[in-house]
């Protein structure tokens, strides 16, 4: 069994990394990161662009290895089990750790409804049908704060939605498979301020049920939505602390330099 990895937290985190490093070919983009993510908590990962924060996030559901030449070492535990252990299937891992990307990625040939159930349909005959399926769609869309806007046009193409709605649809799609953790990779980077605000409110709602990890280059956003913040610089985890502490009293001078805008 894995020991708790985050000194500040008494209970065991839902998801945790230990000595996690990530590579593209020979170049190391994340170095020995040890970090925990707990239920009912939003953890923000911040840092200048190119610091490896997206790569770190993609290691948490084994998406990193889908890039040719990419690899990772170290341990990532989900409920105490190492998801990189031999015999663990990345496909199963990704059903427990959902992910939403920088740009909305609705499937353009599917309707709104089919987008929500896309992750379930993969299950084939085990997928919910009929009224059950409708319940799942409604539940996920409500959860993603999109239901009221789309309930009358579930059969329409997902492409017809605005960028912000598309992004919330992608969140609903990720929620429909009932993950224990959801990873948000700069989810508002391509959205207008109003849509950004809606997604941020949604993030607050999400953490009522599950662990949320959000990568953002926007420090104000991290301050607004997260409970804990981790600062990453050139692949190294510089500091992690409750968000208030990190932004008001950073321990490391590099963190202070970053949050006061001296670089990045």
């Amino acid at each position: 069994m894995i020991q708790p990895v985050d000194e500040d937290a008494p209970e065991r985190p839902r998801l945790a990394t230990r000595e996690l490093s990530a590579f593209f070919g020979r170049s190391r983009v994340v170095s020995n990161v040890t970090l925990g993510f707990r239920d009912q908590e939003v953890t923000a990962i911040i840092g200048p662009s190119g610091c490896g924060k997206s790569t770190l996030l993609r290691c948490l559901n084994r998406m990193h290895e889908t890039v040719p030449g990419a690899s990772a070492t170290g341990i990532v535990t989900l409920d105490g089990t190492d998801i990189y252990a031999a015999g663990v299937d990345p496909i199963a891992v990704r059903r427990h750790v959902g992910m939403v990307f920088q740009r909305p990625t609705p499937f353009p040939t599917m309707s709104i409804r089919d987008n929500v159930t896309a992750g379930l349909k993969i299950l084939g005959r085990h997928a919910p049908r009929g009224a059950d399926a409708e319940d799942v769609v409604e539940g996920a869309l409500r959860h993603a704060a999109l239901w009221d806007e789309v309930k009358d046009r579930l059969g329409e193409s997902a492409i017809a939605l605005s960028g912000g709605q598309q992004q919330r649809l992608c969140i609903a799609r990720a929620l429909a498979i009932r993950p224990q953790v959801i990873l948000l990779d700069e989810p508002t980077a391509s959205l207008d301020p109003l849509s950004t605000q809606k997604v941020e409110e949604l993030v607050y709602q999400l953490k009522q049920d599950i662990a949320v990890v959000i990568v953002t280059h926007n420090m104000q956003q991290a301050a607004r939505v997260s409970d804990r913040t981790a600062f990453l610089l050139m692949g190294d985890l510089v500091e992690t602390a409750p968000t208030n502490t990190l932004f008001t009293a950073p321990r490391d001078p590099r963190t202070e330099a970053y949050i006061t805008g001296r670089f990045g």
């Binding site: 299937d89 496909i91 199963a92 993969i122 299950l123 084939g124 085990h126």
Partner: peptide, 8 residues
């Protein structure tokens, strides 16, 4: 078993 079937 569903996972095994999908992988097959």
């Amino acid at each position: 078993s569903a996972l095994r079937r999908r992988k097959a």
